[in-house]
C-alpha cells in the first residue's frame, strides 16, 4: 500500500518537474494550474473537512499580495512615493534586492494573512452554515473595495511590481517552481494533518459542532488553526501570483471574488469535497476545461463555465472522488455497512 502511494507521489513529482521542460509553451498555464490546486486543496481544509464553507478565502490571497508588494518595495523605496508618483520614478532593483525582497515578501504575506485569519476568526466563527459563507463573501468584497481607497498602496491605480531581473524563460521557470513547491508543500501538510488527531477533531466539528464542543474539543481554537493554515498558503500564493502578473490592482487582481474566489469552491466540489485528492483532481479538470473553452469558445467561455458549474453541482454532487469511492470502495479501503447516510447532519 505504502509502496503504491509512494510511487504515485514520485510520479507526480517527476511529472511536475519535467513538464515545463517538455511543454515550455504551456509553462504559465501549468503554473496557474498549481495555484488552482493549492487554492482548492486549502479551501477543502475548511469547506470539506471542517464543514465551514468559506467564500472569502480570497481575502487572504489579496492581502498577501499587498503585504508582499509593500514589503518588497518598502525595503528599498518609500512606498507612498513609489505609488503616488504614477511611474514618475523608475525604481531599479538589483538582483539581490529583488530576490531578498521576494523571499521576505512571501514570508510576510503568509504570516500576515495568518494573523488576519486569526483575528477574523473571532468574528466569523460564531456564524454557521450559509451565514458563514455569506459573511466571508462580504468580507472579501469589502476588502477589495477598501483596499482601493488606500492611497498608500496606490488605490485603484494599483502597483507595478518590481520585475524579475533575469531572462523571461528563467522567470517563467522560477515562478512555475514556486507555485509547484507551494502546492506540493500544502498538499503534503494537509495529508499529514488529516491523519492526525487534529484532522479527526475538525471532522467532528463538521459532523456535529455542538457535540464536538461537548466532548471537550476547543472548537474555536481548532477552527482558527485550520483557517490560519489555509490563510498562510493563500497569502504566500497571493504574493507569488502578484509577482507573476507584475501589476496588481485591488478589485480584479488581488480580490477576484467572483472568479478565483468561487472557482476554488467549484473545483473542490467537482473533484469531491472532504477528500485529499478530490480538490486536486477537480482543479486539474476545471483548469483544463477553463483554458480550453477560453481558447476555442471566444466570448462564450463564461457561458460554458456557468453551465459546467450548474451541471456539476446539480447533477454531479458527489464529485469525482465521491463517485469513485462509491463505485470502487475496496480500492479506498472502505468497508460498507449499509447504514443510511446521515443527510441532515448540517441542518
Amino acid at each position: 500500500m505504502l509502496g503504491r502511494r509512494f510511487l504515485l507521489y514520485l510520479l507526480i513529482l517527476g511529472a511536475g518537474l519535467a513538464a515545463p521542460w517538455f511543454y515550455p509553451q504551456y509553462i504559465q498555464q501549468m503554473a496557474l494550474l498549481w495555484i488552482m490546486v493549492l487554492m482548492a486543496s486549502t479551501w477543502d481544509l475548511l469547506g470539506g473537512q471542517m464543514g465551514y464553507n468559506s467564500l472569502g478565502n480570497i481575502t487572504f490571497f489579496g492581502c498577501g499580495m499587498y503585504i508582499s508588494a509593500v514589503v518588497q518595495i518598502a525595503m528599498f523605496y518609500d512606498v507612498a512615493a513609489y505609488t503616488s508618483a504614477f511611474g514618475a520614478i523608475k525604481p531599479e532593483f538589483t538582483d539581490e534586492q529583488y530576490f531578498m525582497g521576494l523571499f521576505l515578501g512571501i514570508l510576510a504575506a503568509g504570516f500576515g494573512a495568518m494573523l488576519l485569519s486569526y483575528l477574523l476568526g473571532f468574528i466569523m466563527f460564531g456564524l454557521r452554515g450559509p451565514y458563514f459563507a455569506i459573511g466571508t463573501l462580504g468580507i472579501a468584497t469589502a476588502a477589495g473595495q477598501l483596499m482601493g481607497t488606500i492611497d498608500y498602496v496606490g488605490g485603484g491605480s494599483g502597483i507595478s511590481m518590481p520585475f524579475f531581473p533575469w531572462a523571461v524563460e528563467i522567470r517563467a521557470l522560477f515562478f512555475y517552481g514556486l507555485c509547484f513547491f507551494l502546492a506540493a508543500v500544502a498538499h503534503l501538510l494537509l495529508r499529514w494533518i488529516y491523519s492526525t488527531q487534529f484532522g479527526l477533531a475538525i471532522n467532528a466539528i463538521r459532523d456535529d459542532e455542538d457535540k464536538a464542543e461537548a466532548m471537550g474539543i476547543p472548537t474555536l481554537k481548532y477552527k482558527q488553526i485550520g483557517w490560519a493554515i489555509t490563510a498562510f498558503f493563500m497569502g504566500c500564493i497571493g504574493a507569488v501570483f502578484g509577482n507573476m502578473v507584475g501589476f496588481i490592482e485591488p478589485v480584479e487582481v488581488a480580490f477576484p471574488v467572483a472568479t478565483f474566489g468561487i472557482f476554488m469552491v467549484a473545483m473542490a466540489l467537482l473533484g469531491g469535497k472532504g477528500t485529499l485528492w478530490g480538490p486536486v483532481i477537480g482543479a486539474v479538470l476545471f483548469h483544463v476545461i477553463k483554458e480550453t473553452t477560453w481558447t476555442y469558445l471566444l466570448g462564450w467561455q463564461w457561458v460554458a463555465l456557468g453551465l459546467i458549474l450548474i451541471i456539476n453541482i446539480v447533477y454531479f454532487q458527489e464529485g469525482i472522488m465521491g463517485w469513485l469511492q462509491r463505485k470502487f470502495p475496496e480500492f479506498f479501503g472502505i468497508t460498507i455497512d449499509h447504514a443510511p447516510p446521515d443527510k441532515d447532519a448540517e441542518q
Partner: peptide
C-alpha cells in the same frame, strides 16, 4: 484575439 475578461491578471497571462 483572446478575451482578457477586463482583468489585468488575465491580460498579463
Amino acid at each position: 484575439y483572446y478575451d482578457d475578461e477586463s482583468t489585468p491578471a488575465r491580460a498579463a497571462q
